[in-house]
């Protein structure tokens, strides 16, 4: 005990026990440059894509945590409604492609016109 005390008087140990690891309570998920990236900035496409993808719904919240990260770990329902606000309108064509209307292909039209889809099964 005394020996340790004496030792510490002369030396400032850099390794100290900081307690159990915890996840920081506030996390900033705003996209930043990867620490191993040779570049100093992210390509423009990062911001452009997010802006386009987040124009509606819960992803379009204005706080800094809305840009990803925790969104992926939550069930969609918990993020709130995706309906447009009062007096606000948007077209389905503005949504990501997978939510847009699908055009009939020639093959499907032929299948229907041939007298029934089951004929092509």
């Amino acid at each position: 005990m005394n020996a340790t005390k004496q030792l510490l008087q002369h030396r400032q140990p850099m390794i100290r026990f900081l307690g159990k690891r915890t996840t920081p309570s506030k996390l900033d998920h705003t996209p930043k440059v990867h620490p191993a990236s040779p570049s100093q900035s992210l390509p423009e496409s990062f911001a452009t894509y997010r802006q386009k993808a987040q124009q509606h719904g819960p992803l379009n919240q204005s706080n800094q945590y809305s840009t990803g990260g925790w969104i992926g770990s939550k069930p969609g329902a918990s993020l709130g409604p995706i309906e447009a606000g009062k007096g606000e309108f948007f077209d389905r064509a503005e949504l990501p492609k997978r939510f847009q209307r699908l055009a009939w292909t020639q093959d499907e039209i032929e299948a229907v016109e041939s007298g029934g889809a089951s004929l092509r099964a």
Binding site: P31, H34, S39, P43, F46, G68
Partner: peptide, 20 residues
């Protein structure tokens, strides 16, 4: 897209421009 060395560009959380 990839960078000049063929690497996929990511941010600090390994996300591409498409966050998922």
């Amino acid at each position: 897209e990839t960078d000049e060395k063929g690497r996929l560009v990511i941010d600090q959380e390994y996300r591409t421009k498409i966050p998922h």
